[in-house]
């Protein structure tokens, strides 16, 4: 099983919920049917997106046109002292949808991520995943519900091998009050666990790396290990926080393709925070732009990039 394979991963949950429309998104037109309907969305784009449509059609990427909301972020506000980091932010991410969350430094993107995955508690508003209200749930419970995350600064476990990263994620996913089992369960992975680890590593493109100590890896490799670890948790929603930081242009381009393919193969929704707009363009279906804690634009990539408010936010001047 590799990134390029079109068949489903053994680890992949069956793609579900791709038929319902999303009435909450202003810029997402309702449209019936399956593949090849990206053009319908992009018809709304003022800037024209022909090359993008061709590219996606050429890659035969199965992007849902009218995704059912998986993640609902409603009126989320977070303040630090007197400073509003996130203010009344509302948006949704559909099943299998890829959404870019962009904005200049200090826009509140990572704070919003922390609110979604439970590392911060919002002052107001609520977050719902697949109909389940996440308010008050600790991070680990949200992870078990299917919220995966990679971090702006690669967060790996330096004492572990690559394989161990995935094993621990795999076991944590099935976590629960099994004290005796957890205490006495030998840490040597079972054959089934080994197989699943191998599949995920192959999926992200580092097959055979099970026994490599992660402390011996470079930054780019660590980012892939992080990604693999998140995937071992079989998330329904992956929050990727600046996955390209520390990577060069080519690596960034390749990572975008990996994310795209994973989204397609696993039916996984992706919420991507990224400064590299070319990566965002390559990896997402639509984009949400934040500045100073509030959403200033949503829509397709070209739409938001053409938005004068976005230009002001990025360039500090009028469009």
């Amino acid at each position: 099983m590799t990134v390029g394979d079109s068949r489903s991963s053994a680890l992949s949950p069956p793609p579900t919920g791709r038929s319902g429309p999303d009435h909450r998104e202003v810029h997402h037109a309702e449209s019936p049917g399956g593949r090849g309907h990206r053009e319908v969305h992009h018809d709304e784009s003022p800037g024209g997106r022909d090359h993008r449509e061709v590219h996606r059609a050429g890659q035969d990427i199965d992007v849902p046109r009218a995704p059912v909301p998986l993640l609902r972020v409603e009126h989320v506000t977070k303040r630090f002292g007197g400073i509003r980091a996130v203010g009344d932010v509302t948006f949704t991410v559909g099943r299998g949808e890829s959404v870019g969350l962009v904005g200049p430094n200090g826009a509140g993107k990572t704070t919003l991520f922390n609110c979604i995955c439970g590392q911060l508690r919002p002052d107001a508003g609520q977050v719902t995943l697949d109909g389940t209200l996440l308010d008050g749930l600790p991070t680990y419970k949200r992870a078990r519900l299917g919220v995966g995350r990679t971090y702006q600064r690669a967060e790996v476990f330096p004492d572990m091998t690559v394989g161990e990263h995935l094993i621990v994620a795999e076991r944590a996913r099935h976590g629960g009050p099994h004290l005796w089992r957890d205490l006495c369960h030998r840490s040597a992975p079972t054959p089934a666990e080994r197989r699943r680890v191998a599949e995920v590593l192959e999926l992200v493109g580092i097959p055979g790396w099970e026994d490599r100590p992660v402390s011996s890896l470079g930054l780019g490799s660590c980012r892939l290990v992080e990604l693999a670890r998140a995937l071992a948790n079989e998330p329904v929603l992956l929050l990727a926080d600046e996955p390209s930081s520390g990577l060069d242009a080519r690596e960034t381009h390749e990572l975008a393709a990996v994310l795209r393919t994973l989204q397609r193969e696993r039916g996984m929704a992706l919420l991507l925070v990224e400064h590299d707009l070319s990566m965002v363009e390559a990896a997402v279906d639509r984009a949400i732009v934040m500045d100073l804690g509030v959403v200033i634009a949503t829509g397709t990539f070209d739409q938001v990039m053409a938005d004068p408010a976005v230009r002001i936010a990025y360039l500090g001047m009028g469009a």
Partner: peptide
């Protein structure tokens, strides 16, 4: 460094 990882990954994946 990372290019080698991704290159191999994607080359292996046919991407």
């Amino acid at each position: 460094t990372a290019p080698s990882v991704l290159s191999d990954a994607l080359a292996g994946a046919g991407l």
